[in-house]
Nucleic acid binder design. Structure first.
Lengths: 161, 161
DNA sequence: ACTAATCCCGACGGAATCACTCGGAATTCG
DNA sequence: CGAATTCCGAGTGATTCCGTCGGGATTAGT
């Protein structure tokens, strides 16, 4: 039960882009150095992020990548979905299932276990939907005027245990 | 981002044991047939469950496995931890970390990303802690005298999204 | 126009993990 | 005794992960 390095590296990449936000494109070489990650590998990750419309690229010398919109406007759910695919702790609880169509599991009497995976999926996507990239970017002191209300407001609720 | 078949098959195994609860040990051969799963594979899964104290075994002829306690008393969190190891969406957010000791990640300035993984971890373990095996066992009609109060009582609440 | 920087993109490969299988020893019931 | 069953470690084919490699296209500076 864990995310792959795609998710990890990709999020770290996005956080770096969040720090550079508003200061023009940042090259992959810079980011790879700052985060001590293999640049060729980041290349394929950033492709997914670009295809998802989360970052925009500038080609040529002094080119690079930058966020497509403000960190506050980018939900972590979108980032991780772009990197890891649909959030599904189990095949029979994927997000992109044809809702009326068959489940993958036609096992023993309507698969009561499905409830479990659906609950887990909703818990994950719920917290991911409630966080934005801004929650992870170490304080962007005085770049855009900080609005501390937003950060606490996004937190859903303490969630029982 | 998904659980392995260990989690899936193991949970299904436990649900079957939940149905047989109170009726003596059930052999793996039975369960493998009922769920259409490879019996030799279930063998290694049930070992983990036994080591975790969730099931008890009876050796020899007419032996088998049964739940160590009532389905209402077995949290899904315990089952999945036994099967899949500690719940950790990322290495730097494992449940069994030495809290005062180092994090695995000493990356760029105290790893603000860690917050993300911790939130996800807590969301997962929260829902898992709030569910018991009884929530997944299709109604235990008239095996042991049914107590419908317990079944609805264990269900925590609809859980927002 | 040339060069250096950078993104773009597909293919390849070693290593790890997954999802089992196999064979047999130990234990218990009839 | 013999059949049923748990116990347990070792082995294995396929798949996925985690990158690497090589080169092509695009742009800024000079």
């Amino acid at each position: 039960m864990s995310f792959s390095t795609k998710g990890e590296y990709g999020v770290r990449l996005m956080v770096q882009l969040g720090r550079h936000y508003g200061a023009g494109p940042a090259s992959l070489a810079e980011i790879a150095t700052e985060e001590a990650l293999p640049r060729p590998y980041l290349e394929q990750l950033v492709m997914s992020l670009r295809d998802a419309g989360l970052v925009v690229s500038t080609r040529g010398a002094h080119g690079g990548y930058e966020l497509a919109r403000a960190p506050e406007e980018i939900r972590m759910a979108d980032i991780l979905r772009a990197l890891e695919g649909p959030i599904a702790p189990m095949i029979c609880a994927s997000e992109d299932e044809a809702p009326d169509h068959q489940h993958a599991c036609d096992r023993t009497a309507r698969c009561s276990v499905n409830l479990l995976w659906v609950r887990i999926r909703d818990a994950i996507s719920g917290t991911l939907e409630g966080m934005t990239l801004a929650d992870l970017v170490p304080q962007r002191t005085s770049l855009v005027e900080p609005q501390p209300a937003a950060r606490t407001a996004t937190t859903p609720e303490p969630l029982g245990v």
